[in-house]
Computed example of a mutant assay.
Amino acid sequence: MIEVIKDKNEWRTLLSKVEHTDFYHTYDYHQLSKKEGELPILLKYTDGSTTIALPFLIRNIDNSDYKDITSVYGYSGLLSINIDDNFKIKNFHKSLNAFFNKNKIIAVFSRLHPFIEARETALEGLGKIVSLGKVVYIDLSKTLVDQRATYNRRLKTYLNKARKLCTVIEGHTDEHIQTFIQLYIKNMKRIGADESYLFNSEYFYKLLSSKDYESKLMLCKHNETQEIIAGAIFTKKGNIVQYHLSGINEDYFSLQPIKLIIDEMSIYSTKKGYQYLNLGGGKGSKEDSLYRFKSKFSKNYKVFKIWKYIVDRNAYKTLTENHLNTELEDHELDIGYFPAYRAPIKSISYMASLSELLIFSFN
């Protein structure tokens, strides 16, 4: 009852039957996101007229015969067709577990989508669904006047100043793309981002040229110098616009050009009839300076959740103990990083015991 879809056309066909999807669910984005040794798959479960789809990346676990499953960076989760209160959840769980066990998959992790009502209850009873934090969004169904009424007063001041000195344009040329890549990479290196965020040039070109979704590169040009001082890539699918990547020339921080780009994108998206412009949350889902920056645009937010499921607890425990080189009790397996056997050893600080382990990311 579980079908594994790897073919591009089959993947696209199934998603076309789902009422609401996002670019994070698409075949192309999964191909872009996969790392070496990872295989994008779309699990399809069918029961009568009901279909459930789960996009994943399946990967091998070093020094073992086991595998685990994760989701792409962003918001993935469960998609459904014709699911209702009569849906037999136990049958779905039974089929899913049979697939996991047959393929020696011992752990599952997925970032759930905060904007798509996908009957999250279908996953209840399989591991844990954990609320991590808030993601900020602009409600594009409101008029531009009503949207701006919720803008932070200081934000309005920055926007007025930036609009006098700068112009936002859409990036089309190869020069535009290359300029944005340089801004983005410099940004990531300046803040000490993980290497996984330092995408190669091919990533950006493929991201911007995919037919699975629409994308838009917005650039901010300084009127006096004609220099491109900031840029952002937005993706659009269904009724959702996602603020995906951005970069800024640090010499122009005081102008806050990213704010102007977001504001211009909200104008464009409202006129085009989209419902949400998702700005995302803070780093590690915290209400930090990044979150506060985004919340200046809107007080609307959705709760971001993740799904964690240990399929084979014995194998999970053994792999974790081998990885951390220590024996663990069952209650010590939840170290704040999932799955625990992939926790980056270099960032682990063994103060006095594992109870003092402080890791705040999920992979």
Results as ranks from 00 to 15, higher is better:
Leu54Gly: 03
Leu354Met: 12
Ser266Trp: 01
Thr70His: 03
Tyr184Arg: 00
Ile191Asp: 11
Val303Tyr: 09
Ile348Gly: 13
Thr167Ser: 15
Ser246Asp: 08
Glu329Ile: 08
His222Asn: 15
Trp307Ala: 04
Glu124Phe: 12
Arg59Glu: 14
Ala230Pro: 01
Tyr137Leu: 10
Tyr151Asp: 03
Lys142Tyr: 11
Lys317Ser: 11
Tyr291Phe: 15
Asn300Ile: 05
Trp307Leu: 01
Ile233Arg: 04
Leu42Tyr: 05
Thr326Trp: 09
Glu264Leu: 03
Leu159Phe: 00
Glu332Gln: 11
Asn187Asp: 09
Phe204Ala: 14
Ile81Glu: 11
Trp11Glu: 01
Phe87Gln: 07
Arg292Phe: 13
Glu117Phe: 12
Ile229Ala: 03
Asp330Glu: 11
Glu175Tyr: 13
Lys104Arg: 14
Ala122Tyr: 07
Leu126Phe: 01
Glu10Cys: 10
Gly238Tyr: 02
Leu144Lys: 07
Asn223Ile: 12
Tyr75Thr: 07
Asp194His: 14
Leu78Met: 09
Ile106Ala: 02
Thr179Met: 07
His30Arg: 07
Lys134Pro: 00
Lys308Ile: 06
Ile335Tyr: 02
His20Lys: 13
Pro257Asp: 02
Ser131Asn: 13
Gly74Ala: 05
Pro257Trp: 00
Leu112Glu: 00
Tyr213Ile: 00
Tyr316Met: 02
Gly281Met: 02
Val145Asn: 14
Asp84Lys: 04
Glu264Cys: 05
Glu332Ile: 10
Ala343Gln: 04
Tyr197Ile: 06
Tyr316Thr: 00
His113Thr: 00
Leu14Arg: 09
Ser295Cys: 12
Ile69Met: 15
Lys35Glu: 08
Lys286Asp: 10
Ser131Phe: 10
Leu290Tyr: 03
Ile105Asp: 12
Asn82Phe: 12
Asn60Trp: 09
Val72Glu: 08
Ile5Val: 11
Leu14His: 14
Ile105Arg: 08
Ile359Met: 15
Lys305Met: 06
Arg190Leu: 06
Tyr158Ile: 05
Lys104Pro: 13
Asn325Gln: 15
Phe297Ala: 00
Leu15Tyr: 01
Asp288Tyr: 08
Phe23Leu: 13
Gly48Ala: 09
Ile335Asp: 03
Arg190Asp: 06
Asn63Glu: 13
Asp330Met: 07
Lys286Met: 09
Ala315Pro: 03
Gln178Ala: 15
Tyr24Glu: 04
Met265Asn: 08
Gly133Asn: 05
Thr143Glu: 11
Tyr243Asp: 11
Gly127Thr: 00
Gly281Ala: 05
Asn322Pro: 03
Glu321Gln: 12
Glu117Ile: 08
Ser201Gly: 10
Ala122Thr: 14
Gln178Leu: 13
Glu327Pro: 06
Glu202Ala: 15
Lys102Thr: 12
Lys142Trp: 12
Ile89Tyr: 05
Glu329His: 10
Ile306Phe: 03
Gly282Phe: 04
Pro40Ser: 13
Arg119Ala: 11
Lys299Phe: 06
Glu224Cys: 11
Lys90Pro: 04
Asp84Trp: 04
Leu159Thr: 00
Tyr75Met: 05
Lys94Gln: 15
